[in-house]
């Protein structure tokens, strides 16, 4: 059995009195590609945001790449270096060029020299197929291009794990494919990925495992074909009926 990239053990979290994450147990192996789906408000985003501590869990253990997430700031910094994240609304830094967006963290967190950081950045910008936009500002790019920059920015830190929080939900329909292509390419390169997404074609194509969440719990998980063809829980069935028309 291969090593674990992310382990969540009996994780619980509340917003005030609202129980957002209920007894989450999850073990993600290195190189695994997981797609998480579920109705809105089911806690999918909260779960993956706990992995890089954008949200704090209140009970249970989360261990990322062997590092336990406690209140220790040093551990949190270490985890964030290993985990890249792509947001629904891109969250690029609007006052920096595309290239500067990509070199910011390598230079200030990993303390790489500028030339090296720029070289890495250009490598990943080529990989997401927009090296020619390097000197533009995010505001001058289309949504799809911005999201690809966001992916390149995350990759520049050489993360071992990538988190995707609904990366295509804020995009116009014609731009979804260019982002998914990059993600597929990434998956085929062997990256450990956790994606919150409703792109079921993507799930079938690259995922090793699909997780269905509802009301803060993991209700069902399975390998993609079984999951789509033969869902077990009635809640999963209902959800799949609704999104697959």
């Amino acid at each position: 059995m291969t090593e674990s990239a992310v382990v969540m053990k009996s994780v619980n979290k509340w917003y005030g009195q609202f129980h957002v994450l209920r007894d989450i147990n999850l073990d993600v192996k290195k190189g695994e590609r997981i797609v998480i789906c579920g109705p809105s408000g089911s806690g999918k985003s909260t779960m993956i945001r706990c992995i890089n501590r954008l949200e704090e869990h209140q009970q249970g253990d989360i261990i990322v790449d062997g590092i336990p997430l406690t209140t220790n700031v040093k551990n949190i910094d270490d985890v964030r270096r290993e985990v890249g994240m792509v947001f629904q609304h891109f969250n690029l830094f609007p006052h920096l060029t595309v290239l500067e967006n990509c070199t910011l963290a390598p230079m200030w967190v990993r303390k790489e020299p500028k030339a090296q950081a720029e070289e890495t950045a250009m490598k990943f910008l080529k990989r997401v197929k927009i090296p020619e936009q390097a000197l533009k500002y995010p505001g001058q790019l289309s949504g799809g291009q911005q999201q690809r920059v966001a992916i390149a920015r995350a990759l520049c830190m050489n993360p071992k794990i990538m988190l995707f929080d609904e990366p295509t939900s804020a995009l116009d329909p014609e731009m979804i494919k260019e982002v998914l292509d990059v993600m597929v390419d990434l998956a085929q390169g062997g990256m450990t990925m956790l994606c919150v997404t409703h792109e079921m074609a993507f799930a079938r194509q690259v995922a090793n495992r699909v997780i269905f969440m509802d009301q803060g719990q993991i209700v069902e998980q399975n390998e993609p074909n079984e999951f789509f063809l033969n869902p077990q829980s009635p809640r999963t069935k209902l959800f799949l009926e609704q999104i697959l028309h």
Partner: peptide, 25 residues
């Protein structure tokens, strides 16, 4: 594969609580 959360998966032992030092808390 199973319905509902699998509890049986192997999990590395949890790291000692409290972390490295109080300096980083």
């Amino acid at each position: 594969m199973t319905v509902n959360t699998p509890h049986s998966k192997s999990v590395p032992p949890p790291a000692p609580a409290g972390g490295v030092s109080w300096f980083y808390d």
